[in-house]
């Protein structure tokens, strides 16, 4: 009803022309002139993929000045033809969620709280721990003398929710370091 009322050739034009009727348009002029922000000048559009289930719906990300304005279904896609489910539609909401954590948090052993930590410092600390675990838990051979070249003290868990290239870097680095406990959601 609303759409028809505001449509210039619809009910509104009939009402407007009705003899003796003098009413104001129910929707203000400025509102009527509003357009979706995605059509604003300077808005860029990039092609993406929904990060939730494995259907692989194609999405369009609208952004300007480094800020995402909206994420919508891609009408060109033979999979989703522009549609998205509630989760896919919330991809934008996930990116801009006020509850998102965007800085490094550090919890000391036996501490009761999170602390802030500089990103590069965190990276150095993590690399040092990984190296120590490897050096202290290296297994050269098993009992029958067959080579092992491995370390069981560190696990890498996850992969199905990140990119293929990220999976590739994980398996390459961890297996090169001799880490055998590499696993993801495929079995879960």
């Amino acid at each position: 009803m609303f759409l028809r009322l505001t449509d210039t050739d619809g009910l509104w034009s009939k009402l407007k022309n009705h003899v003796g009727v003098k009413v104001k348009h129910p929707v203000s002029e400025s509102t009527r002139n509003l357009r979706a922000r995605i059509h604003d000048p300077g808005v860029q559009k990039t092609t993406s993929v929904c990060p939730y289930c494995a259907v692989g719906c194609s999405t369009l990300v609208y952004h300007r000045d480094g800020r995402i304005l909206d994420i919508e279904g891609n009408p060109e896609s033979p999979i989703n033809a522009g549609t998205l489910c509630p989760k896919g539609s919330a991809t934008y909401g996930m990116h801009v969620s006020p509850h998102r954590w965007t800085t490094v948090k550090y919890r000391r052993p036996y501490s009761e709280e999170w602390e802030d930590l500089d990103l590069e410092t965190a990276m150095d600390m993590i690399a040092e721990r990984l190296k120590n675990s490897r050096d202290n838990n290296w297994q050269e051979k098993q009992e029958d003398g067959n080579p092992l070249n491995h370390c069981k003290a560190v696990a890498s868990i996850g992969g199905a929710a990140i990119d293929n290239e990220e999976n590739y870097l994980i398996t390459k680095l961890f297996h090169t370091m001799g880490m055998v406990r590499v696993t993801n959601q495929a079995r879960i």
């Binding site: 939730y52 890498s156 990119d163 293929n164 999976n167 590499v182 696993t183 993801n184």
Partner: peptide, 15 residues
């Protein structure tokens, strides 16, 4: 059920 559960088996992060 995950965006690249197939990919993470193809390019495996598995032991």
């Amino acid at each position: 059920g995950h965006a690249t559960i197939q990919g993470s088996t193809d390019i495996a992060t598995l032991y």
